[in-house]
Design a protein around this nucleic acid. Structure first.
Lengths: 342, 342
DNA sequence: GTACACGGTTTTAGCGTTAAAACCAACCGT
DNA sequence: ACGGTTGGTTTTAACGCTAAAACCGTGTAC
């Protein structure tokens, strides 16, 4: 363990091992090019000196930073908890084996984000960026394509999905699975509460419910829309529960709405799980806290897929293959829907 | 807007502006050294070419990366939601004005984190690191000091606080404020549920309650301990509520425990806010969802203070001034404690 | 015995930037 | 008129690394 502070360089290692600097470099980058005997000698010197290759020098020489940029957004206080946090960790973890690091940046809006990403790339501070939570009308993919910024998106726009690589979660199947699960538990009157806007995620989740219900030969009249807040969720739940033939189960497009439903149910003296089954979306900590069944996004898998595609994209920035990957979500069953309908 | 892809360098700008590369560098780093006329000429060329200084080259030359490392931890599913997310954003934002970026890394335990941080520093990939959620017996500050890694911690160990710079939240005052607030609302029987272990944060929060109660001349018998999970919180709340002279308000050391209390209360037919006031800690989204009053940590302020101290530390790594900063938390009053005791 | 290929290593050069030194007017004092 | 400032600019060199070229001893072919 060396304690002196002047950084150890390739040349230092080379001097100790009695070889040239290039040989040390080869030991690290192309070990097969160097004689085992030499390699061991060099490795011993590296060990002895506690050498770590300098990132900046490597980046300068190879013009690749091994850094991926990601805009970090402030967590909205309206929304019940996001998967941003888990996604970040998964991404950092996914980059590790290939030596990629995640670097954060902030931006106030989509345009600023695209501009910041462009600067990051132009400055050689990052090799590519990840777009998080891309929605149907998102301007960011277009902006980044125009700015020639290598990127992969989590989520996708409604058009232009053939122009860039993306990873997305199959919301439709997720919600459909939730309906299957409820039908299996004996439910027939199954409602749905989703976003009012017609952006892709909302549309797809609604369609998942609609199609599954139709497939089971069940009516699709119990369909309500709400903003992504708890009060709106409660209100929408109220409307469904006021139906002359009310639901025994409700699927929500988000955990936030699900919590709103939960609240409305308890207010009305309905026991969640027993009198009204509830299923949320995103499997947030809050869903856990409320014992809510929720449709969880495969965050780790998504992060891994994104890093893979991004490495492709970064490797050949001009005419690289464009890929889309749709991942299946996973239903996490909890008390709010576990028991069979009495 | 140039569309060709070969990166623009200082030399390109210099050629266009008809000056030397060094002058361009001076325009960017020491504008006062260069004639206004020349400066404008150079600035025009920079603009025209869309030049962005190369990070790697700058880092190599100046041996400073303007990068701060931060270990990102997986969000525990046990805990109801953390402030990690908000802290990350605040930190990224706090670094922006001075051109510092946050780079994430992962590690499986404290020792691995320290080792990874050391490597990051030795490789020149980061100038310093931030330790998040440092507790009384935390081995990390010691390890980083030994490894000569510049760092600032959020939270502090019980000893050695004179050896490194830290920022922490004044838990004692936070809890004490919560008690004051409850007393003001007419409560007299105020209980406390905290962690069982004797680590600093737990001790300090418990002391805040104890001291405030004593100050108000109120008894401190309603003291229970629980693991940081909802079931444990419920159980502990049950014990307090079974008291022959039960509390009308309970302060919890975490939002997770507070949610447990909330659950236990509703199970017993007590209406939170009306029959039992509850105060949590950390002001997580879940607290918002439950309408729980909570003691919020000043995340933005903390992040700013940390960046400030870190820049000090990085600037003079050997004998820099060591500072500690204690920040006051802020009580966020919600339905669970708003109304006066009947 | 000379020519040639070959695996392993070293030498050379350059990535883009900036601190430090050198340079070069124009100006100043005597 | 001549050495000495001064302010602005250019030259030089180096940060640590690695691709590419050069080099060099050995083995092989004829």
């Amino acid at each position: 363990m060396p304690v002196n502070d002047q950084p150890v360089t390739l040349a230092d290692v080379a001097a100790v091992a009695n070889v040239s600097a290039q040989t040390v470099s080869n030991v690290l980058r192309r070990p097969e090019r160097v004689l085992p005997k030499t390699r061991r000698k060099v490795e011993a010197a590296i060990e002895q000196l506690g050498y770590h290759p300098n990132h900046a020098a490597r980046a300068l020489r190879a013009s690749t930073s091994h850094v991926i940029g990601l805009r970090i957004e402030p967590t909205s206080t309206e929304v019940v908890g996001s998967i941003h946090d888990r996604f970040l960790h998964a991404l950092a973890e996914a980059g590790r084996p290939s030596g990629y690091h995640i670097q954060l940046f902030t931006a106030d809006d989509a345009a600023a984000e695209a501009e910041a990403a462009r600067t990051l790339i132009r400055a050689g501070a990052a090799d590519g960026v990840v777009l998080y939570d891309v929605r149907a009308q998102d301007p960011r993919p277009g902006l980044l394509l125009a700015g020639r910024v290598p990127f992969v998106s989590f989520g996708r726009t409604v058009s232009g999905t053939g122009e860039y690589s993306w990873v997305d979660v199959d919301d439709e199947t997720g919600v459909s699975d939730a309906v299957d699960h409820l039908v299996e538990r004996g439910h027939r009157r199954i409602g749905y509460i989703g976003w009012p806007e017609d952006f892709s995620v909302g549309v797809r989740r609604a369609r998942g419910w609609h199609d599954a219900m139709t497939r089971h030969g069940l009516p699709t009249d119990l369909d309500a829309r709400a903003e992504d807040t708890m009060p709106a969720g409660s209100q929408a739940a109220g409307r469904l529960l006021d139906d002359p033939h009310p639901p025994t189960a409700i699927v929500a497009a988000t955990d936030t709405i699900a919590v709103g439903i939960h609240h409305e149910a308890t207010t009305r003296g309905l026991r969640p799980g027993a009198d009204l089954a509830i299923v949320g979306f995103d499997d947030t900590p809050t869903a856990l806290a409320f014992g809510l069944t929720s449709i969880g996004q495969p965050v780790t898998e998504a992060a891994r897929a994104i890093m893979e595609l991004l490495m492709d994209t970064v490797a050949k920035p001009d005419r690289h293959a464009v890929h889309g990957r749709l991942l299946a979500p996973r239903l996490v069953v909890r008390a709010s829907s576990r028991s069979a309908r009495p």
